[in-house]
Structures are given as structure tokens and as C-alpha cells.
Design a binder for these strands. Structure first.
Lengths: 303, 303
DNA sequence: TTGTAAGCGTTATCAA
DNA sequence: TTGATAACGCTTACAA
């Protein structure tokens, strides 16, 4: 390894980012005090000569307001630069139009590209429905649970997305006990109750296919690198691995004999996307399953 | 390249994640309706026999409430599992205790590890102060601007963090026009006004050091891979590159002759972290600069 | 078609 | 040390 003062390692990046973000937070903190004067419904009402009620309904596009009136009110509102105070609206309609996502963090990192994409995907779907995303990144443990508690009981979000189910997941237990709307990405561990809303891919079948692929090419020593067994998908992947080996009459490789199959693992998930499981069952049209076909030298999703 | 049905590429990961997240959103959407019955201040007041006012103050830890009373109220509140409705509080105190972070997305990805770490870092600092993070990932453009507008004018956040300043940045122009609290990570482009709050590293010095390092080792053809010039830090890095070459009496490499220096670039930022710039100036103690020293074969930050 | 008034769950003011 | 009462800015019965 070349000794260079410029070499990069992930710890450096981590400390760098943390240092920067900490400084930014401090700087931002000192700016909060400002009291922003905002145009409110009342102001529009005063300027336009109508009541707050009418203005509210005109802007909301209700049909029971005169077209002339509506145009006038809209004109005044845009001229004044009116924007509704969402917090007030939230309080009134008892919906926050926000969903919570608490990303499980390991080793100061999301550990892979997945959560990045996941975040973008969820954010995208949400913002189409004018929903916002409340994000928190927490390592599994007490801090994480209190993040859940705060968000849930503080009524900050309408629902929560829970990623990477764990064995005897305390988060699921909590959300169920609170009867709080949530959807998990990942099913329950074998033997545990599975009657909560979730989406999952069939990682067991995926890994089995993968092992069969290697076996078909003549390999007999096939290793598998797995994340901690605490995570449920690990259990299923492991099972798929044993399925594949057993089916081929091959015994498990000794512990020391490992192949790095990380990429293939994710890819195998993709391969089995079609066999996606969820509960409660969604109508097929709703969750828009995609067919998988071979294209180029990889698999591609088709709608 | 080996043709395997299990090969992974980033487009697959992207479509995979999007498919999953879309399904999750749909599933979650169908659960929103539920009306969660929550314990409120009034309930605690009724059970404890005190008024809403007193309960509120007891729970907030005000000094003007009898110790006996406080203990009793706290006891009742915890027994009932009371948690304040944060939205109501937000409306009343006119603070959302939330900060906004709109991550600029390119090519369906954050493009590097940085934003991941950044997100964790900010989230960490924020949650210590009981702040939450409203995150949106948007590609530069109109959608991005409307995300800013919605968040800003809807009063959803107390302040915004703006990452990766661009030349003639419309986001900065907007936030300044609205007089909205924000801090940028990245300074203004050369020649542009720089009187907005920002934090930045000295990328120009960093790249210069890097070039000098190569030159000292006898290299004469040194290339530099740069992100689009639209981003301000690119401009400074480019300048640092020219500085380094000019100082060594070496002319720029022809366009075709490139070395991949991505990692080194980030590392050079770390190296110059100490020369961090910001405006308005923070007191030294506040932004807790860290000294850089050589450790192992890389640079490490020390507090 | 429009307006009055109540209320969402807090915190803050002021009087008791 | 406590409690009425009035906001915060919006939506929505209900009445006019």
C-alpha cells in the first residue's frame, strides 16, 4: 500500500462530514431567532374585502364560491404572496402530511447504496402527494427507540416506514402496541408473528438461485458473506444458501472458505422482486409489480 | 466481462429501490386514515384535578409550581402516557423545531458517500437539540425550487441547510430574498456576493497541495477529474490545480491525459479543514476547529 | 354564495 | 401557587 498523505479512508470521510455538519448546525442555530412576518388568511381577507372563510374556500378551490370572487381572491393572494401556514393546517385537519423514516445506521454509515436510493424513491412518491419526509438516522438501540417514541407520540407524522426488520424487533412491537400506521420493509423472522403491514422480497429464493448458478458452473466451495443474524433478511438468505447447497448435494463450505457475494445478493433480490410478499395483500394493480427480463448481460426491470 | 444473470449495476439498484419504495408508499397511504386517540393536556388535567395551565407548566418544569403538585402531575402524566402534541406546540410557539435539508441529486444518486455522512451528522446534532430533519432529495431545477418554496413559505422549518452552492445559485437568491434563515455548505463563486452565511473548506489550497505532492514525486502529467463547472467548489478546485502546476512550472495536462483523483480530492479537503472559511465569522470556540495530524498513513482529525 | 363561530392542543398573559 | 382566558392560523359546520 502506498503511503500518501492524501489517502482516503471512510473514517476520514466520516469525521470530515461530521465536523462540517456540526459547524453548520451551530451556525444555523444562531439564526433561528428571527421572527418571520407572514401573510396570513386574515390579511388576504382584509385586502380582498371577503371573510376569512370565503378566502379559505376560494383558495382551496371549493365549488360553492362565486367565480368572480374566486378570481379576485386568488389575485389578491398571489399579489400578497400568501402561502398557507402548514402547521396551523396540520393542527386543524389532524394530519401532518409527513411520513417518518428512521434509517438504521451501522458503523457511522448506511452501509450501502440502498438507503440512498430508498430515500430518493420514498421522497419522490411522497412529494407527489405533497407529503414531506421526516428523516432520522439512528443506530439500533435506545436512542433509536426514543426517536420512534418522540416522532410517534408527538404526532409529528401520519405514518412511519420501518426498514430492515430485526428478530424480535422492538420497533415493530412498539408501533403495533401504539396501533400506529406503519409499513415495514422486511417480514418477520421465521416463527414470529407476521401480521403487520410489510413489503418484502424473497431473499431465500434469491440466494438459492445464486447458489444453483454457481453449482451449475461446477463450483463446489461456495461461501456466503452475511450481515449479522440479528437482521431478518439474513436468516432468509442463509436458509436459501442451505437450500441451494442441499439441492445440489453439496455441503456447506467451511467457515474459512468464503466468496464475496455481496453484489450478487442484492441482484438476487432484484431477481425475485416479482415474488414480492406483502401483508395485508395489496391488489395486484396497486403495487404495480414489474416483470423481470434479461437484458444486456444483466437483469432489468420492466413495467 | 463475465456474463452472469446476477451481475449488479447501479441502474438495477436504482430501479429496485424505486420499485420497493413506491410499493411501500402505496401500502402506507392506505393506512393513514386512522384517527389516533391521543392523551392530551386536558386529560391529564382532569385526572390530576389541576387546570390545563398548571399541568402545562408543571410538565415544562416551570419553577412557579408547587413541588408536590408537580410530582403528582408528572406521575399522572406518565401513567396516562401523555406526550405533547408537537404540532400544536409548534403553532403556539411559532417554531417548528425542524430544519430542512434538500439534497441535490444527480443521476438518481447522491453521487458519493458524503451526503450520507452529512445527513447522519446533521441529524445527530439536530436531535441533541430535539430538532427534527425534514429531508427532500431533488435534482437541480424547477422541482427543486418548488420544494424550497413549499418548505420555506409553508413555515415548515426554522431554517434550511443548503449544500453544494452553484454559480448564480437560484436557491441562495430565493432564500436571501425571503430573508429566511439558512446556512450554505460552500461559498459563493468568485466575483459573486459572499455575504450569506456559509461554511466552506479551502478546496483550492487542497488541490494545490495535491498537485505539489505529485510534482515532488516527479510526475509531470497530472490530470484532474472535475464535477460540472456549475458547482462552485469545482471552480476553486480547478484554480488550485492551476496554482499547483504554475508554481511548479508545469503546464496543464492535455485534456486526454487524466488521472483519477477523486479520493485524493476529498482527502485534500480534509487536509484543509483547518483553514475553514465561514461568514459571518464564528468565534473560534464555537465552531470547534480540529487540528490535523498525520497518523498511520493517512491524515486524521484530532479535537 | 357568503359569513359567524367553534375548535385543533398547546403556551402565555394576567388576575385571583 | 393556581386558573380563566386568549391567542397561534387554519378548516368547517351551520346559519344567513
Amino acid at each position: 500500500m502506498q503511503h500518501s498523505p492524501f489517502r482516503l479512508d471512510s473514517q476520514i470521510v466520516s469525521e470530515y462530514s461530521h465536523s462540517i455538519s456540526k459547524t453548520i448546525w451551530i451556525a444555523l442555530n444562531s439564526l433561528f431567532k428571527q421572527d418571520k412576518m407572514h401573510i396570513k388568511l386574515k390579511d388576504v381577507a382584509l385586502k380582498s374585502g371577503y371573510s376569512v372563510t370565503t378566502v379559505s374556500r376560494a383558495l382551496a378551490g371549493y365549488s360553492d364560491v362565486n367565480e368572480q370572487t374566486r378570481l379576485h381572491i386568488v389575485e389578491v393572494a398571489t399579489r400578497l404572496g400568501y402561502q398557507p401556514n402548514l402547521v396551523a393546517r396540520q393542527l386543524r385537519i389532524r394530519r401532518t402530511q409527513t411520513i417518518g423514516l428512521i434509517i438504521p445506521v451501522r458503523d457511522q454509515s448506511f452501509s450501502n447504496e440502498f438507503f440512498t436510493q430508498f430515500l430518493i424513491g420514498i421522497g419522490d412518491a411522497a412529494s407527489r402527494a405533497r407529503y414531506d419526509l421526516l428523516v432520522s438516522a439512528q443506530a439500533p438501540g435506545e436512542e433509536e427507540m426514543s426517536a420512534y417514541r418522540r416522532i410517534v407520540s408527538g404526532n409529528r407524522v401520519d405514518g412511519i416506514i420501518l426498514a430492515r426488520t430485526r428478530r424480535n424487533d422492538p420497533r415493530i412491537a412498539y408501533l403495533r402496541a401504539q396501533n400506529y400506521p406503519f409499513v415495514a420493509f422486511g417480514r418477520g423472522a421465521p416463527g414470529e408473528p407476521a401480521d403487520f403491514p410489510f413489503i418484502d422480497v424473497d431473499g431465500q429464493a434469491g440466494i438459492r438461485l445464486l447458489v444453483e448458478h454457481f453449482v451449475a458452473r461446477g463450483h463446489r466451495h461456495i461461501g456466503l458473506i452475511l450481515p449479522p443474524e440479528e437482521m431478518v433478511f439474513t436468516v432468509y438468505r442463509h436458509a436459501g444458501y442451505r437450500d441451494g447447497l442441499a439441492g445440489a448435494g453439496v455441503s456447506s463450505a467451511p467457515a474459512g472458505n468464503r466468496t464475496k457475494t455481496r453484489n450478487a445478493i442484492v441482484k438476487s433480490d432484484v431477481r425475485t422482486l416479482e415474488q414480492r410478499t406483502c401483508w395485508p395483500p395489496l391488489r395486484r394493480a396497486e403495487h404495480a409489480p414489474r416483470r423481470l427480463t434479461s437484458r444486456h448481460d444483466g437483469l432489468t426491470l420492466e413495467s
